[in-house]
Design a protein around this nucleic acid. Structure first.
Lengths: 222, 222
DNA sequence: CGGGATCCGTTACGATACTG
DNA sequence: CAGTATCGTAACGGATCCCG
């Protein structure tokens, strides 16, 4: 049962962990930050999770008010973050900043989809954005489509194709990880691992400037 | 075994959780942020942890380079954070910011000591500090002594009595939690739940200004 | 008494299979 | 697609015991 292994302490850290500290919970939240998702989207993005666990965790997120179940387009059920659930962004970002310090496992398990990208890169862009930047970019990472919308110093990253992108950038998950953690330089990343198609002239530079600044956040010393 | 239940994903969040995501690990780190601690300090601060788990977790922290075992004064063994381990501060702080949004359990378990306070309040003071502030304060919380040293916009919080405090402030853990989460106002906190003894005139105001600003960080909207 | 190690009953997890 | 059911295994919690 969910209530048995709780800390039940006054400490706010323990209170947080009692909601989001269980195995898989933070990774589910991570994927939900890419936008509403179906059960099977989550299952495929969370490599290795058992279905009963995904069910349990989603239910706990709903009970705690971090997520809701809602109806999507063709009668499909979607899970989405609530406002409270969206507050986990900074926790996830700091976790990513910390986790980036460790070398990746030699044979990492591949996720079935790349929703995983959205939080980390989204928050990093949010912190790096300048008020002048304004564009809609489509990021194609290993064939999956993300939309990065920037305007008035506000950034949104969604796991969906863009409607009318100013720029389309194509790259790979591995290259993004390597670049953000300093394994390859930003120049090398851009030259060797990125293809850009510009629809609105100039917007390509805005995108690369923002991505460069965002990735620099992870290039932490020592 | 420690390696069996790891995510082994490329995602930096998952990589972080593979080191610090196990049950109790983040709370152990939390207590270590108050300064080097003995096995039994940790055991008593972490209400309810089993000894084998504490041993396992400490060993894992050492293996991952987040903590080290070292020798203290009277031949006692101490556990301390490494530089890498100290990098968990911001993760813990964001967890505290998030956890503070949930009402405390009705009958929370009491910790055997209050090392738990150090991270949260320490980071909050660090973020709220102004360059002019400079003092050494002793915080006596439920009879336990902390030292808050402030100089040159740098803040240190240790679980130890102060050598020559400019101010001594006495209060309770519950009142601090209540004030930092907006249950009682800062004024009421200061008037009803705090006793101050000033040794260096004026420093008392500096302390209360800093604490007020720090606690305001937690008073997040909605 | 500090610093653990060992044992054991219970619980959660992971894998797979199955269902509306 | 969205889960439920089952089951072996690994981790947890509590207690006790050990050793310098």
């Amino acid at each position: 049962m969910a209530g048995s292994r709780r800390y039940r302490l006054l400490c706010p850290i323990a209170r947080a962990l009692d909601r989001i500290g269980d195995r898989w919970t933070l990774l589910i939240l991570r994927d939900l930050h890419a936008g509403p998702a179906r059960y099977s989207d989550l299952k495929s993005g969370l490599t290795g999770i058992a279905s009963n666990l995904l069910t349990d965790r989603l239910q706990q997120l709903i009970d705690d008010g971090l997520a809701i179940k809602c109806d999507g387009e063709h009668g499909v059920t979607l899970y989405a973050l609530t406002g409270l659930g969206a507050r986990t962004r900074d926790v996830l970002f700091e976790l990513a900043m910390f986790g980036g310090r460790f070398p990746p496992d030699e044979d990492p398990r591949r996720p079935g989809n790349l929703r995983t990208i959205a939080v980390t890169l989204g928050v990093a862009c949010q912190r790096a954005v300048t008020p002048e930047a304004r564009f809609e970019a489509e990021l194609k990472v290993d064939g999956e489509h993300f939309t990065l919308s920037v305007q008035n110093a506000s950034v949104e990253m969604r796991y969906a194709p863009a409607k009318s992108p100013d720029v389309v950038m194509t790259t790979s998950y591995e290259a993004m990880i390597a670049a953000s953690e300093g394994e390859i330089s930003l120049d090398r990343f851009q030259k060797d691992h990125v293809e850009i198609v510009t629809h609105t002239p100039g917007k390509e530079a805005e995108l690369m400037t923002l991505l460069g600044a965002a990735m620099t956040l992870f290039a932490n010393e020592s």
